[in-house]
């Protein structure tokens, strides 16, 4: 599903964010990317959705070489992304926030409504569909972000420190949700520096430090 071959990422003026990383994540896997702050976790995630280009090496997503693509729009429609800071559209309702990826993908009006309602029920926020992000708690906002990320039935769900801004109880809820999504067959890659989560929900762990894989 995701393959890195000797991937190096250097940010100007010469910071090695990733050094010769080779890894393979299979279809339907649940994988943790872990390591201390500044280890290169976000960079690794960003390379998957082409938020940044590798300095060296090759990256394949679903068998396609994405290293050289110019327009990442199509790739991103097949990947769901969840961030620490939720990245919701502030001036849009919860309903609209979840509907927007469907609009982008060109889904028909009638289908959008039933799909959004289904997704909001799935994350338990149907009753808050006309609220704005600011009116929701952090955990609720992250659930909206997850509903949005899976709106188009992505093959891959990337979550970069999704629980970073949440208290423990909410964090557990979010990981549960991600596990549930994984059980539906979605490949989930979760970057976190929290060791508690790793022990609560065991799964494959890729540990990186200073841009290098230190253990698998």
């Amino acid at each position: 599903m995701i393959e890195f071959f000797h991937v190096t990422k250097i940010y100007p003026p010469g910071i090695y964010a990733l050094k010769d990383v080779t890894l393979k994540i299979r279809k339907g896997e649940f994988v943790y990317i872990t390591g201390p702050s500044g280890a290169g976790k976000s960079t690794l995630m960003s390379l998957i959705y082409r938020g940044t280009r590798p300095t060296d090496g090759k990256i394949f997503v679903r068998g396609n070489d994405i290293t050289g693509i110019d327009n990442p729009a199509k790739l991103r429609r097949e990947i769901g992304i969840v961030f620490q800071d939720f990245k919701l559209l502030k001036h849009r309702t919860i309903y609209e926030n979840v509907a927007i990826p469907l609009l982008i993908a060109g889904v028909k009006k009638e289908k959008i409504e039933s799909r959004v309602n289904y997704l909001l029920n799935f994350v338990g926020l149907f009753s808050k569909r006309w609220a704005y992000p600011d009116e929701l708690s952090g955990g609720e906002q992250q659930r909206v972000a997850i509903a949005r990320a899976i709106a188009n039935d992505p093959y891959i769900l990337l979550a970069d420190e999704p629980t970073g801004n949440l208290d423990e109880e909410m964090a557990i809820e979010i990981i549960y949700l991600l596990k549930e999504i994984n059980l539906k067959g979605v490949t989930v890659v979760l970057a976190t520096h929290s060791t508690e989560i790793l022990s609560l929900f065991p799964a494959r762990i890729i540990k990186i430090d200073h841009g290098e894989i230190v253990s698998e």
Binding site: Y49, G51, N71, P72, A73, K74, L75, R76, R77, E78, I79, I81, K87, L88, L89, I100, P101, L103, I104, A105, R148, N152
Partner: peptide
């Protein structure tokens, strides 16, 4: 900020 989010959701430049 909003445009960056839309790009992450796979919006093309027309959208």
């Amino acid at each position: 900020e909003e445009i960056e989010i839309l790009k992450l959701l796979g919006a093309d430049s027309i959208f």
